[in-house]
Design a protein around this nucleic acid. Structure first.
Lengths: 325, 325
DNA sequence: TGACGTTGTGCAAACGTTTGCATAACGTGG
DNA sequence: CCACGTTATGCAAACGTTTGCACAACGTCA
């Protein structure tokens, strides 16, 4: 209680508020000075009790060790921070039980809103929040009928396909990630659509579902490379998965690009700095994070917000072309 | 207010507590059932106001997009979650201003404790917490005089050195990361100590300070490879940095292992699944996270806690040996 | 000089819990 | 049948804020 420190009572509250209207200019100065001296901070929790706003927003991600989600979260947190919000992130590991528990814990904190980065077909979190009246936004992965900020994954897949077609590839493989996530599904669909249109449809067994991550990519890549006629190019819907697949290509005794070209997705920092720099479809991860927070903020303030669909861009590098940049 | 729902008042509080002593067994059942029906959750914030404990712990990291810190944070969060705590993580980006702001925001939440993962020589956060009486623990990076959970980085450096010495390397380079972080400093010191002892001291200009991350590694690697007599082996104090350096080796037209061997540090998931699997010194990241939380918990409960120093292990792979495992 | 507006401050209620204490209901043993 | 112990519940205060309202002091204008 900083009030004992001097003489007043709860004029302190006003003096410390952003707009100290109706308080003596001199008092404001003195109070603030004293607060700084004493290292006093208003208790946001107690304030929230009164105001009904916790200034806390929750972020649900599958896992933070996934570079992609970590990047998005970082930008959400930065945007939220400057707007005076604190974020709480929850690793759900795509495990329903764990996610239930974490969501309950979050709801107990009376958060002002939630950003969902791990939505999945058949997922109930979004519906539950909707029903409880808690503002929320989906990011990265979309779900029909919910506000979301994503990139155009279908287009991203087409960009990858068109790049490979232009280079003359006709027998290609796809490492499709997790088909229950809208990202994996739409990227591979977009890719196949373009190859269909070009008259070189991708056979079903050249499309392998893998999950995300380097190990998953390695196994999927091994599978593709062991076909009697392996593909001359591979599209992986995630950069780390692509890295794993690059290992499979090497293990099969083939050369990257010359024998088998490779395209990843997301253009994570690492992609450009790999020993063999990886061609990748860049989705504006930081923008997505920031925009999703802004959309959520609008929802919290009761304003209208519309879903955002960002345009991806293909960045050619050494795994598909000899010279680039 | 679940109380209106039925008939009672704040017997609800007791009924919902972990040990509902002194409450009718029947009442307990009814209340809990009803709470589940209504999807009611106790407001932790309000409870904290009364009990003085927010059940919130803060975690300071340089950046979450660093796989190493993300892994540690994940395990901290898991341990904290099962103990009924919520964690709030803050990216400080090793920027003093930002860190000040974030720490203030955290203190406003009246957290029960803090885990510091970004300590730096000359850093004041630990001292400030100490002075304010907020329990805290350092993880990953240590600082003299503060409770910490780390791995023996000096030993880790020696392990790397001994491995290279056993393979016959005598002219080696070190990519030392950030010398203001205890990790970078001690790993390179340990490494050099072992080479000194073997009679092949590492010349100063073969040790380059770089910062962490793939791009930093690439630049440092380029520098080393452009020497008239480049090293026959490189020790990088971080896996991602090593990946960048592998790019430099390739760009110089040299072969990994045959011409230049490479050792990383931390044994991040990715290391084993790179196209050329990376020899790395494994530090038990998950254990560190868990143990740091447990130490913090002890501190919070007023018990004694001792610093922990874990033993690292070297995992040989393709960048140093032909066959492994 | 009296009425009135302005400006700065204090009062008190409310937010949703927890918890020590009082009290009601009910058996039980002497 | 009364006193007493046990068990279940209610009461009220307290935690640290915010905020509508009342109020005091002061100047100003007619």
């Amino acid at each position: 209680m900083a009030r004992h420190a001097q003489v007043h009572v709860s004029t302190v509250s006003r003096a410390l508020s952003e707009d100290p209207a109706g308080v003596g200019i001199e008092t404001v100065r003195r109070v603030r000075e004293l607060a700084a001296m004493l290292g006093y901070h208003r208790d946001v929790g107690a304030a929230g009790l009164r105001t009904g706003s916790s200034r806390l927003i929750g972020v649900l991600v599958p896992r933070l060790t996934d570079l992609v989600l970590a990047t998005i979260y970082e930008s959400i947190d930065a945007a939220a921070g400057t707007a005076g919000y604190t974020t709480v992130v929850s690793n759900t590991l795509d495990d329903p039980l764990r996610r239930r528990a974490r969501l309950d814990a979050l709801l107990s904190r009376r958060l002002d809103g939630v950003i969902i980065g791990d939505s999945h077909v058949g997922d109930t979190a979004a519906f539950e929040l909707q029903q409880r009246g808690v503002p929320y936004v989906l990011v990265m992965r979309k779900l029909e009928g919910h506000l979301s900020v994503t990139t155009d994954d279908h287009l991203g897949g087409r960009l990858a396909a068109e790049h490979l077609l232009a280079l003359g590839h006709t027998r290609v493989g796809v490492i499709a990630g997790d088909l229950l996530a809208s990202t994996g599904l739409q990227r591979s669909q977009g890719f196949r659509t373009a190859f269909d249109a070009a008259g070189y449809p991708v056979e079903d067994h050249y499309v392998v579902n893998s999950g995300f991550g380097a190990l998953a990519g390695r196994m999927a890549g091994d599978q593709l490379m062991h076909f009697p006629t392996p593909p001359t190019a591979i599209f992986a819907v995630d950069d780390l998965t692509a890295v794993g697949a690059m290992g499979a290509i090497r293990a099969a005794g083939k050369r990257l690009r010359e024998d088998v070209a490779m395209i990843g997705y997301n253009d994570v920092d690492l992609a450009a700095n790999l020993p063999v720099p990886l061609t990748s479809v860049r989705s504006a991860l930081s923008d997505m994070g920031r925009l999703s927070f802004e959309a959520l903020q609008r929802r919290i303030n009761g304003e209208e917000a519309e879903s955002v669909l960002l345009k991806p861009v293909l960045i050619p590098r050494a795994t598909t072309v000899e010279r680039w940049e």
